[in-house]
Amino acid sequence: MKIAVLSGKGGTGKTLVSVNLAAAAKISTYIDCDVEEPNGHLFFKPKDIIEEEISVNIPKVDGNLCSGCRRCVEFCKFNALAYIKDKLIVFEDICHFCGGCILLCPEKALTEKEKVVGRVQKGTSEQVTVYTGILNPGEPSGIPIIKKLLDENEHERDKTVFIDCPPGSACIVMESIKDADYCILVAEPTLFGVHNLNMVYELVKLFNKPFGVVLNKCLDGENPSEKFCLEKNIQILSRIPFDNELGTLNSNAEIAVRKSKRYRMIFYFLLEAVKKEVHHEATSDS
């Protein structure tokens, strides 16, 4: 069972929810796909870390073979190539390694060159296997790292996998939720929170994924995100209160489920609610 946790922007509690769910599930896998700013590991403090570099193939030009036809320059939709004074220039930071130019060069002047874009770490924290994807600063795309993180877990089908997605709704998020069985959307109780929630709501609907919402930072009084859910008939899975205890645990990078009985219950119930939903989906599908 794969559960993806999303939010429209960072800082809404996406990591809080995914880390605590993974901890509440006890034997589980947590994957941090927020490769630009992975911080799940700060909470889990995983041990026995194994690290692997992730590289992509970018083009390298052989000036002796290049005829200057510029087909590659015209082709590259990322504008990563320029041809100036009889020389092809490759902008490595702009290249999205689609490989197209290498395929189409009529003179076979372009070949593949490996470039490291980031790394993947695997470690354990109690019985949770913790994967962290780390994208090198300035790299245009974290997708190769996400692919690696998710492929790596194909064989661990029996465990419950929690995917901490990157914020937003760009293609990197789509990649992260592609194989998810269920999506949890985390929302803040503000008008801006509704706007962010709507972004990810549109995305999961587009992908036709079953989903539910966790309302985070709940205070007494009006909750625009809650109103949004009720209007759209969206399942509310849990309401996480906003209090000092959680704030303190969070800022000390402690996992609430492992420290506080109250939070253990909250996330345990959330986990059960999600399991029920996934089960319900599975049976109504067949």
Binding site: V73, C76, K77, F78, N79, A80, L81, A82, Y83, I84, F91, I94, P140
Partner: peptide
């Protein structure tokens, strides 16, 4: 209107 590398493409045209 291109999504990325607009400066590179524009500079190529200037050159």
């Amino acid at each position: 209107a291109s999504t990325g590398g607009a400066g590179i493409r524009a500079a190529q045209m200037i050159a």
